[in-house]
Simulated scan of single mutants.
Amino acid sequence: MPEHAPATPDKRQVAASFSRAAGSYDAVASLQREVGARLLVRLPSLASARWLDLGCGTGHFTRLLAERFGAGMALDLAEGMLRHARPRGGARHFIAGDAEALPLRDGSLDLIYSNLAVQWCGDFAAVLGEAQRVLQPGGVLAFSSLCAGTLGELRSSWQAVDGFTHVNRFRAFGDYEALCAGSGLQVLALERRAQTLHFPDLRALTRSLKELGAHNLNPGRPGGLTGPARIRALAAAYEGLRTAEGLPATYQVVYAVLCKSR
């Protein structure tokens, strides 16, 4: 059985945070672009597909999917992201919706592509159940996500300062393994890969997280502004991790391809 998953943010907070970040997101989304491109490479060969970009964000991969398969559908919880994506095209329909309760008919899709979105879903078993429901036999769910250990450098640096939750917590990779194995979908591929970004200083890292809409959204985070003394203490702790390339920020990325049995 999967271990108890960490508490996840309120969906309204997630939607509001990413809606606010829609205008700045593309300029700082290098990790999201790289991970999404690696996920595209992992897609099985499909001559054509009725597809859904699940958690489409600003629609970058919606447009790439359309180039490969023709126009499909895109869904996101954040209406602000959809307002950004719609004018750029790629999908016949841009839908405001929840991955845990898809507003789609049974067996209506051949492919669900989801890049770095489902880590925000508290009930991942429901996400898998919805994929099972809306995919036709032989249909494919391909997703990337983040798991425990992500931003470990920032977490450990904060632990030297105080006991609050300052860094988003994600479910363990073992949870993904167990939930995918029990989903009724065939697991074609499931792996975890670490990817490290480097920043010149702490301010650049925290600004990047804020502009992505991915700053701390977890229950247990401290209220109000963080005082300058704590920021200085955090920066001093983080400096101990500096490499020749800068301050490291490591993401534990999950890649998965699942198929609905024929």
Rank of each mutant, 00 (worst) to 15 (best):
L39R: 14
L217A: 02
K11D: 14
M81H: 10
A233E: 10
A172R: 15
A101F: 03
M73I: 11
C180Q: 00
F173P: 03
R133A: 10
G246I: 05
K11E: 11
A96K: 15
G97C: 10
T150W: 01
F18K: 09
G240H: 07
L247F: 05
T250G: 12
Q119K: 03
A27N: 13
R133W: 09
K11N: 12
V35H: 10
L77W: 10
S48Q: 15
W120P: 06
E239T: 03
H84Y: 08
R230K: 14
V118G: 01
L82E: 04
T226Q: 01
V257S: 02
A178T: 11
S45E: 15
A85G: 10
G246M: 06
T226V: 14
S261Q: 11
A233G: 04
A22S: 15
R207G: 02
A85I: 03
S157Y: 10
C121N: 09
R68K: 13
A15E: 13
Q132K: 07
H4C: 04
R20H: 08
T250I: 02
H84R: 12
G36H: 12
S24P: 05
L40A: 14
V127I: 13
G89P: 07
M1A: 13
G224W: 08
F170S: 05
R42S: 14
L64T: 08
N168S: 08
C259W: 00
L31G: 11
